[in-house]
């Protein structure tokens, strides 16, 4: 990629979790929440990150923002490695890197007014701003996300989920960040509200030229917002490709399984689908399978898959896949070719 704003190189985050407890000491087990993840992100680009719960996508987001400490790897933001910065320097960087949360209400302090919530980043990053200036900026921001500025003295519980998410977006954008990481920003919202928020995010991204990392488990939403998509499973990247490549011809068996699992709101097509549900369950992250982590659920797995960890190979311009069974994985769309728009009836 030419001039990426963000380069993540071989990033790993390991957690120790409690195992057996004996007297004062606890046995510790290691969870490799993020394991050697690399990708690049361009200016004003949207990267979708998909995966099921426990795949490490949220941890990855927090590691990029320095909210959890990675164990290895580099996060290069505009040429500077963020890993190893001290607390103070990292805090300054956070003005450029903001986060939008999954839980709209839970991410707002219940004892603060909307004005205080959206104004907090300003007070932190620009302590010299006067009260009036802060209020002015906050009101402008609220208006931009579709909240009437006269509601500035209201408290979070007086708003609906969708409105709370708008407030969360205003808080993230109020300091003019360049990268916004959205961690499941719509999964807690009702469908009709989801669309409002997705549209709002897309629009603001275009207007403010933001780079966006959009984390979700919903493949249809990711398809709708992303330029490129990264698929994670058990802390590792399975596939990364441009949106069109990925949905037109998913090359990793896991990506195919994910798309296959999505029910489509069309009774005729949905019932005609010959669907094979992916068997099994997510293996324990403290004890992942050897070799390819997906092999225990993969219909194409062989003994080789247990022996070698598949490299994330570039198989096409801009697309990488971590699978050694490329010769047998089916090609082409998982879902039938979409009808042209207009053919709705």
């Amino acid at each position: 990629m030419r001039n990426p704003v963000l380069k993540v190189e071989d990033l790993s985050v390991h957690f120790e979790v409690d195992g057996e407890s004996r007297w004062f000491r606890r046995e510790r087990e290691v969870v490799r929440a993020v394991d050697g993840v690399s990708f690049e992100l361009g200016a004003a680009e949207t990267l979708g990150i998909v995966g099921e719960s426990g795949c490490g996508k949220s941890t990855l987001a927090r590691a990029i923002l320095g909210l959890v400490k990675p164990d290895a790897g580099r996060v290069v933001w505009l040429g500077d490695n963020l890993i190893g910065l001290d607390e103070d320097a990292m805090r300054k960087k956070r003005r450029e890197l903001q986060l939008i949360f999954q839980d709209p209400l839970g991410s707002l302090d219940p004892r603060m007014t909307v004005g205080q919530i959206v104004g907090e980043p300003l007070r932190n990053f620009f302590p010299s701003m006067s009260g009036i200036q802060v209020r002015e900026r906050v009101a402008g921001m609220l208006k931009m996300v579709g909240i009437a500025p006269e509601l500035i003295n209201r408290y979070p519980h007086e708003f609906s989920g969708g409105q709370c998410q708008r407030i969360g977006i205003a808080r993230a954008l109020v300091v003019n960040p360049r990268l916004v990481v959205c961690d499941e920003p719509v999964s807690a919202l009702d469908v009709s509200i989801q669309a409002q928020i997705v549209n709002l995010l897309k629009e603001l991204q275009k207007k403010l030229q933001l780079s966006l990392i959009f984390i979700a488990h919903d493949l249809s939403v990711v398809q709708h917002v992303s330029d490129r998509v990264l698929v994670m499973y058990l802390g590792k990247v399975m596939e990364i490709a441009s949106r069109d490549q990925l949905y037109a011809d998913p090359r990793h068996p896991y990506t195919r399984a994910l798309i296959e699992a999505v029910p489509i709101p069309d009774p005729v097509a949905e019932r005609a689908r010959q669907r094979r549900a992916l068997g099994g369950e997510l293996p324990s992250p403290t004890n992942p399978p050897s070799g390819c982590v997906f092999r225990t659920r993969c219909p194409y797995a062989t003994d080789d898959c247990a022996r070698t960890t598949p490299p994330l190979d570039e198989i096409d311009e801009g697309r990488r896949v971590a699978c050694i069974r490329q010769d047998v994985v089916p090609t082409g769309r998982v879902l039938p070719k979409p009808p042209r728009s207009g053919a709705v009836e």
């Binding site: 469908v191 989801q194 249809s220 939403v221 709708h224 489509i264 709101p265 097509a269 879902l335 728009s341």
Partner: peptide, 12 residues
């Protein structure tokens, strides 16, 4: 409701 969900089986 039907139109507010993004769909994998339709042109975006």
């Amino acid at each position: 409701l039907l139109e507010s969900v993004p769909r994998l089986d339709r042109e975006d």
